[in-house]
């Protein structure tokens, strides 16, 4: 077990897209142990993604069971090759990041998602998530795609001026006029 170094902005490696995990072996599980130790080190984070420690594989950990006010959650989750297959609703919420110290900003995320992933042994996982936990997963999957929350920050004023827009597929949902990204 080891605490790994966190990549910090403006390290260009944070923009790198991570590849899928293909070998569910002991090396993967040893890395996951280190990633979890790193998550809990220092100012403990709710979640962490492998590329934040310069390992460009699709692995994230989230644990939304320790919030000040309890939120719906599935406990500590190690998600390998996570994929959001459905998302709905939008709401702004404040986010920060181990890779962007001393900065928090508002980001619009889907309020409900359906998630498919693998566990560290390669077994399939499926979850319906909402709110804070759905936000956590969207933030971490962004890391796997080389996206930081600072790329998605919206102004406080933007939050006030919501309007109805029509999403792809004809589904009506509430979003803000400055939101280009509909995917987490």
């Amino acid at each position: 077990m080891a605490v790994l170094d966190i990549l910090k902005l403006p390290d260009p490696r944070l923009k790198q897209v991570s590849g899928p995990v293909t070998a569910f072996d002991d090396a993967l599980r040893r890395f996951i142990d280190d990633l979890e130790e790193t998550r809990q080190d220092g100012p403990a984070a709710v979640g962490i993604a492998a590329p934040q420690v310069a390992v460009f594989q699709r692995v994230v950990i989230v644990d939304c069971s320790q919030t000040r006010k309890p939120v719906p959650n599935h406990g500590r989750l190690v998600l390998v090759n996570p994929e959001i297959t459905h998302w709905e609703g939008y709401e702004p919420g404040r986010e920060g990041c181990l890779s962007v110290p001393d900065y928090t900003g508002n980001v619009i995320r889907a309020t409900r998602i359906h998630l498919e992933a693998r566990d560290p042994q390669g077994a399939p996982l499926e979850f319906d998530m909402e709110g804070y936990e759905a936000r956590a997963v969207q933030h971490e999957i962004d890391h796997l795609d080389g996206i930081l929350f600072v790329d998605r920050v919206v102004s406080r004023r933007t939050d006030l001026f919501r309007r109805k827009v029509y999403q792809k597929g004809g589904k009506k949902s509430e979003t803000t006029k400055n939101t280009k990204n509909t995917k987490g």
């Binding site: 709710v46 979640g47 919030t67 000040r68 919420g93 404040r94 986010e95 956590a136 933030h139």
Partner: peptide, 8 residues
């Protein structure tokens, strides 16, 4: 509303 920034 309570605000608890997500840190990850």
């Amino acid at each position: 509303v309570p605000v608890e920034p997500y840190i990850g």
